[in-house]
Design a protein around this nucleic acid. Structure first.
Lengths: 345, 345
DNA sequence: AACAGCGTTTAAATCGCTTTAAGCAGTTCG
DNA sequence: CGAACTGCTTAAAGCGATTTAAACGCTGTT
């Protein structure tokens, strides 16, 4: 119906087609079955056969066709990852997920979450690829949606706790992280410590709770002061202006995340308030921004690498070892003290 | 050989398996061939058949298996993208590539370039997926490597010019962009305009050339002053310290990119030099950083959306319309004036 | 009545690999 | 000596879609 004869998608123009398993088999005078076994490192073939096959495959520059292999084995060896392409923290997670997945012979399919592309679409794409497990980074989907997803494939939610019983969760203890921040500030003599919220979502809730609990623990109940905010710099700036306008500036402010903290920092400095001289500021995530020399932000690290490893490990337990009961892996966050915190004035 | 019976990767536990084409066909009493035609919107089936099939597919919640379809059609409808996961500019490109690809029925496979994962590995992965074309974002591979790649699949290099004749290039005119910056500064009365280089690579070379040419065009030959640098904040800071130490501060500094400009900005401000009061600073890329209120950096936008569209369009021309001669698409960059440039002191 | 033409449908081959059960030669054992 | 076993190898049946050529049921023409 279309005889334009588009460029051969398999290879260049009239070039020799990609070698197939059969070509390798023919070259050594064996069956494709044997070659397949050797190349997948399966038990069976003799040492001599192994060497010959490997040799021939290398000579021909053979690379297995994942598509065909996935179809035949009903195993795609693909991990689907839903990632917010704009988040520097996600970028770091993905980097480590790549490494961890590769080590166990899996590949990643990334599906980006953007302003125009919701989690639903992203997940559909991943399922069409027959991803064997889904890794959701910082998912904000409600529990029932996740539950439905969990029936289609094992789901590992990274970074955000959920009430849903049937999926794995890998996260750091957000309340503990904020607790460490408050401990640090209290240790520096701060008493009037405000907190800028992160909006809706479990993560935000946990961090807020961590703040309140820690304040009470230090007997600072009456200094508890929560400002409305979200995950953006803009929110941080708004919060900053609000504090400046209010008259009684706290001696320290803890923000939901680094981006928010940076907005806050900007607003304060622009108004001539010295950080950390007059006010200490703390963020959360230890993302690339916070490390910039011009911010040098005290923050909490979520240990991206360890979370990535654990997420892949959890997927492997389900896929390769048939685990079915859900697991929750909670890692301890670590405080990273940089230049935006100092003794209370 | 392994009777642990791992969790069924196709679906949850003992759940009904995913419906296949055959199931849809059986439901309406037609052949799989007809159903396939309808679902791919191909000519042939009657209106009545179309409706019945679509209905049945919807009822069953049928979703085609990309794996099988790729194998049978020898067309994966996959575009491979090599992306530096840490670059905010790449993030933006990916967002728009997603949109553009989806519109023409293709999906993206992202392969992240990281500290531990070179372009070679990334590309291998993409080819194993049978990606029909490769889109390289800001590739730094030497021409011969790209040439070899081009023989395996159509390659579209986004953002970086190359001498290699056989691939498509989508980029903005970097020399022109820097030229616009210099024009802008000259218009503000600046004469002593320095430039911080971006290290090796075609992009860096083009931008340096753009600087020199523009300076000459404005008769500022003797004010040409190029500082060594690269694409990082650290380099910007070093350049800043060098300028401060030298004694004769220029009235404006143009940096290779936004990250570098921000390092520069930090160094200057820390030393008490007012920007833009004493010195104007300009970056390049218009990435998320430059838009932060605390920087509000004058910069040059590369128009990510348009570049993404053009890249996908170029791929489509090759894949669907059989184009074989290479194309180079050069877009005009646009100056974004923000708060770090002002009249010369 | 035979045939051609047309729009619609389908049987069957195929894609490149995996997997299962069977085959085969050479022990070892009862 | 035949049965049972062992270690290696392979024929052949898929996996779930696409694709091609053929078949089918019509109508209209000679």
């Amino acid at each position: 119906m279309d005889d334009l004869n588009p460029a051969d998608p398999a290879g260049g123009d009239g070039a020799t087609p990609r070698p197939r398993l059969e070509d390798v088999a023919a070259r050594v005078g064996l069956s494709t079955a044997s070659v397949s076994l050797v190349l997948r490192n399966a038990a069976g073939p003799s040492e001599r056969t192994r060497r010959r096959v490997l040799r021939a495959a290398a000579d021909l520059g053979y690379r297995p066709d994942r598509t065909a292999s996935a179809l035949a084995s009903r195993r795609s060896r693909l991990l689907g990852v839903v990632v917010d392409i704009h988040s520097p923290f996600h970028a770091e997670l993905v980097e480590h997920l790549h490494g961890a997945a590769e080590e166990v012979g899996y590949a990643l399919v990334l599906s980006a979450l953007t302003r125009t592309r919701a989690e639903g679409t992203a997940v559909e794409t991943l399922l069409a690829f027959r991803c064997e497990a889904l890794i959701l980074l910082g998912s904000v989907s409600p529990a029932p949606v996740l539950a439905a997803l969990g029936r289609q494939a094992p789901v590992i939610s990274v970074g955000s706790r959920t009430a849903e019983a049937d999926l794995d969760v890998v996260r750091t203890a957000d309340d503990d992280g904020v607790g460490q921040i408050v401990d640090h500030l209290a240790g520096l003599g701060h008493r009037s410590i405000a907190y800028v919220e992160g909006g809706v979502g479990v993560i935000a809730t946990d961090r807020s709770r961590g703040y309140r609990d820690a304040m009470r623990r230090h007997g600072l109940d009456e200094h508890i002061r929560v400002l409305h905010g979200d995950r953006t710099e803009a929110a941080g700036e708004r919060a900053g202006r609000q504090l400046l306008g209010g008259g009684d500036l706290p001696t320290a402010v803890v923000a939901y995340n680094d981006q928010c903290a940076i907005g806050l920092l900007t607003a304060l400095r622009r108004a001539g308030v010295e950080v950390p001289g007059a006010v200490s500021v703390v963020g959360y995530d230890d993302d690339a921004l916070s490390r910039l020399a011009c911010f040098d932000l005290t923050t909490v690290s979520q240990n991206a690498e360890e979370q990535a490893r654990q997420a892949v490990a959890a997927a492997m337990e389900r896929l390769e070892r048939g685990r079915t009961e859900p697991r929750e892996i909670v890692l301890a966050p670590t405080l990273v003290v940089r230049g935006t915190t100092a003794l209370a004035r």
